[in-house]
C-alpha cells in the first residue's frame, strides 16, 4: 500500500537523529560538570590576586599603575570577545553577538573606534561576515583550555592599552547563572579602579622584593590574564549547558515527531486493511 513504506523510512530516520541528539545531550551534561569544576578551580587564584592588588593599591596611593588609572579622553575601545568553537548550543552565541552589536553601535554613535581580539571560532566566523577591526584571535581551545593558548591574544590588548592605542578594555562573554540560564555580559576590565574597601585599610604593609612597582606590574598582568582565562572556562560551562538544553529539546521534539508519524502510519495501515477486506467482501458478493 502506498505511503506506509515512506512513513516507516521517515520514522527510522527521525529515530536515528534522536539517538544522536540524546548522545550529545549526555555528553554535554558530563562535560558541563567537568567544566564547572574547572570554573571553581580557577576562582581562588583570581580572588587572591584581587586581594593583593587592592591591598597594594591602598598601601601605595602614590604609585599609579597604568592599568589602574582612569583615562579622561577615551577615543578607542578594545574588546575581547569570547565565543564557543562549535555550534549546536541554542542561542548562546547569537544572544552574545546581539548584545555586543548593541553596545558597539552605541559606541560607534559616540564616535569611538573599536579594536577586537576574538576567542572562539564562532565569533571569528561572525565578524568575518560583518566586518570589524580584528587584531588577533585564538580558536580551537578544546574543553580544557590552556593559559598558553590565550597569552598571545591577551598580550595584544595589554600592549595596545599600555601604548595608549586603546583607552578601555572590555571583556565580552557569557556568565553562567545556572544550567538553564546564561547571560551575555560586557564587563570593563581595564582600567580596573581598585576597590576602596575600608575594611582593607592598611595599618601594615608588605615587604616587597624587588619593589612594589615591579610586583604590582606583574600582578596586574596576571590578574587580567586570569580574568580572561576564567571567563573562557565559564563560557565553556555555558556552552555545554546550552548544548545540553538544546539537545534535550531536540530529542523531545524528535520523540513527538515519531509519535505523530506512528499514528499516521497506523491509520494508513488500518485503512489499507479495511479497503482490502471490503474489496474481498465485494468480490465474494459479486460471485
Amino acid at each position: 500500500m502506498a505511503g506506509t513504506k515512506e512513513i516507516r523510512t521517515k520514522i527510522a530516520s527521525v529515530k536515528n537523529t534522536q539517538k544522536i541528539t540524546k548522545a550529545m545531550e549526555m555528553v554535554a551534561a558530563s562535560k558541563m560538570r567537568k567544566a564547572q569544576d574547572r570554573m571553581r578551580a580557577a576562582r581562588p587564584y583570581a580572588e587572591k590576586i584581587r586581594n593583593v592588588i587592592s591591598h597594594l593599591a591602598q598601601a601605595h596611593p602614590e604609585y599609579r599603575n597604568a592599568y589602574l588609572e582612569e583615562r579622561d579622553n577615551v577615543r578607542r575601545i578594545g574588546l575581547i570577545i569570547i565565543s564557543t568553537d562549535r555550534g549546536l548550543c541554542g542561542g548562546l552565541n547569537s544572544n552574545l553577538f546581539r548584545e555586543t552589536i548593541k553596545h558597539m553601535k552605541e559606541w560607534d554613535g559616540k564616535g569611538l573606534e573599536m579594536d577586537m581580539v576574538i576567542i572562539g571560532a564562532k565569533a571569528v566566523g561572525f565578524f568575518n561576515r560583518i566586518g570589524g577591526n580584528v587584531l588577533g584571535q585564538a580558536t580551537h581551545l578544546g574543553d580544557e583550555p590552556a593559559m598558553e593558548d590565550l597569552i598571545g591574544a591577551i598580550k595584544i590588548m595589554l600592549d595596545a592599552y599600555r601604548e595608549e592605542k586603546i583607552d578601555r578594555l572590555y571583556l565580552v562573554s557569557n556568565k553562567f547563572i545556572n544550567s538553564m540560564t546564561q547571560t551575555p555580559t560586557i564587563e570593563r576590565i581595564l582600567p580596573t579602579p581598585p576597590s576602596r574597601d575600608d575594611r582593607l585599610k592598611a595599618y601594615w604593609d608588605y615587604i616587597y622584593e624587588p619593589d612594589a612597582k615591579e610586583v604590582l606590574d606583574h600582578l596586574m598582568k596576571n590578574y587580567i590574564e586570569s580574568l580572561v582565562y576564567s571567563s573562557v572556562v565559564e563560557n565553556i560551562s555555558c556552552e555545554q549547558a546550552a548544548r545540553m538544553v538544546a539537545m534535550k529539546s531536540a530529542s523531545d521534539n524528535a520523540g513527538k515527531l515519531i509519535d505523530e508519524l506512528q499514528l499516521i502510519y497506523n491509520k494508513a495501515r488500518q485503512a489499507s486493511i479495511t479497503q482490502e477486506l471490503s474489496e474481498i467482501v465485494g468480490g465474494a458478493a459479486a460471485v
Binding site: M104, D108, M114, V117, I118, V124, F127, N128, I130, G131, G132, N133, V134, L135, G136, Q137, A138, T139, E148, I151, G152, A153, K155, I156, D159
Partner: peptide, 20 residues
Amino acid sequence: AVLKAKEEAEKALHNREAKI
C-alpha cells in the same frame, strides 16, 4: 604567542572590511 594570534586573525579574516 602574540605573533601567532595575529597571524591566525590575518589568515582567517582576509579580504574584509574594517567597517562593521
